[in-house]
């Protein structure tokens, strides 16, 4: 696998829903996760970033920490999300994002603070989730990839007068 980088057209296309939950799919998910863990940061990845136009993404903020004191980031471990649908958005905050598919560029993006969403697991069973803070931001970033959206599509001015909420 390798990371596609913008302006690769695969990153700007709408991805198809997962319809067949078979061993081939599970094998792909396993490989995608292993690949994600080899990347710097490595807290999230979406299938289109490796050229597969299917609604699959993985998020795992377990190893992530904040600030010099290395405070852990609240998270619910590894999430394998197939056909994720965000159903509710609550609050908003400004945060800085970058993307493995957009090297050497970071910018400010406004995201919902808290989201509810549903997603299928690797066997096609649907689950409901709630997430907030950094993990919610990561999920919104990855779900955007499935709709052909990059954080570049949501950039706001670096002089935006909206401070991060705690």
């Amino acid at each position: 696998m390798e990371i596609l980088t913008y302006p690769d057209a695969h990153l700007k296309q709408q991805c198809a829903p997962v319809e067949t939950f078979d061993n081939e799919l599970r094998q792909f998910v396993t490989e995608l996760e292993a690949f994600m863990r080899t990347q710097p940061g490595g807290i999230g990845i979406a299938a289109p970033q490796v050229g597969r136009a299917e609604r699959v993404c993985i998020i795992d903020l377990t190893g992530m920490t904040r600030g010099k004191k290395k405070r852990p980031v609240p998270n619910q471990g590894r999430l394998i999300l197939l056909n994720p649908e965000i159903t509710e958005w609550d609050g908003y905050e400004l945060g800085r994002e970058g993307c493995m598919s957009v090297p050497d560029y970071t910018g400010n993006v406004i995201r919902a603070t808290r989201i509810n969403f549903t997603a299928d697991d690797a066997f096609g069973k649907q689950h409901e989730y709630t997430s907030e803070g950094f993990e919610a931001r990561a999920i919104q970033h990855e779900v955007d990839h499935l709709d052909g959206l990059l954080f570049l599509d949501r950039l706001v001015s670096r002089r935006t007068d909206l401070f991060q909420r705690k």
Partner: peptide, 8 residues
């Protein structure tokens, strides 16, 4: 305040 950058 800290600026935390998410690379996704």
């Amino acid at each position: 305040e800290e600026i935390e950058t998410l690379i996704g």
